[in-house]
Amino acid sequence: MARKNRTIGSDHVDIENGILYGVIKQIRAKDSESFRSNTASLVNVWCCQIQPSQTQLLAAAIRDHINSKDEVSLVHLKRFLKEEDESGNVFLKAIICSTEYLTTRSEVENFLTLHLHTTISDIYIIEVPKFPASTKEISDDWSEKYWPMSWKGNPNHQFLNSVNFNMKFEREIVSQLIEEYRQSKDFPTSVTIIVKETKNQEGEILAVVRGGNCNNPFEHSIMKGIDFVSKSEQQRRKHSIHETSDPSNYLCHNLWFYVSHEPCVMCSMALVHSRIGRVTFLESSPSSGGLESYYQLGDRDGLNWKFQIWKWIDENDINVINKIYKSPTPINY
C-alpha cells in the first residue's frame, strides 16, 4: 500500500495539473512524443545472444562501461530476455547499447570479447522504443510488439514526484525579479536572473539583467544575459593561471534562468542553443512566446537539447508584474 501512495504523490505535488507547491506549473509539449504518444518512436540498438552463465559478466560490463556513456537511455527496457531453442536449451537475448554509441558490428564484437572473454557471434540490430510509455497499457503493447519494457509508473508522474524546489530560494529570486522589473516601467521589456545551482536546490546568482526596449531583438534580457555569461567566462579563462578549463563551464550549461515574461521564439531557441538546465517564467506571451504559447522549444523531440520549463503562477506576483507595465500591443519578450 505504501508503494501505491507514492505514485499518488506528496503533498506539494498536484500530479493531474503538473503544479508543485501550488505556484510552480510544469510546461510541456502537448504532443511531446516522449510522454504522451501511443506510437513508439524507435531507436536502433545492438542485441546479442548469450548463455545464461554469461549474464552477470555482461550486466556488469553494461553497468560500468555503457550506461554512463551511451546518450540514448535504455533504462525503460528490460536488458535480458530469456528464450528456449527447439531442443529446450535456454539462452538469453541481451540489449547492449544504442547504435549511436557503438556504431559498427566489430566494435560490439570487441566489447563483448573483452568483457565476456569469449567470442559472441550472434550480434544484430533491433528497433526498440526510445522513450518509456505513458501508460501501463501502452507499455504492455510495446512489450509485445518490440521488446519487454519495464513499467515503473507514468514517467512524468515519477519526474514530478522527484523534483524538489527550495521555496524560500525561489520566492527570493522571484521578488528580486519583480523589484528589478519595477525599475523599467515605461516601455516593453523583460528581466532575466541567471543562477548556477550550488546545493540543496539553491544557487548563486550569476547575473541580473534588465532588458532594453523589446522592439529591438538585441535588447532582450535573455540574449543580454547569455552574452554576459559568455563574457564572464572569457574573462575567467583569460585570467586563469591554469590552462585547464572547467569542462562544466560550457555555454550556459545547466544554468537556471528566471524571466519576467515568456521568452519569444528567438530567445527560447537561444536557451536551447545555450544548453540551460531549466527556465521559470512569470507572465505568458500568447502572441509571441516560444515555450508555452508556440512550438514548446525546450521540450521538443528532435532538437539536440531539452530543459525543464516552469511557469510561476502565483496570482499576486503576476498582478504586480502587469500593474508595473502591460504592453497595449503584442510584443516579443
Partner: peptide, 23 residues
C-alpha cells in the same frame, strides 16, 4: 529557429540560403 525569429523581428527583406538545416 532562433535566427529565423530574429530576422522576422527585424523585418528583413528577403533571405536566400544554400542548404537546408535538418536539425
Amino acid at each position: 529557429i532562433m535566427c529565423a525569429s530574429f530576422l522576422r523581428q527585424l523585418g528583413i527583406g528577403e533571405v536566400i540560403y544554400g542548404c537546408s538545416n535538418d536539425r
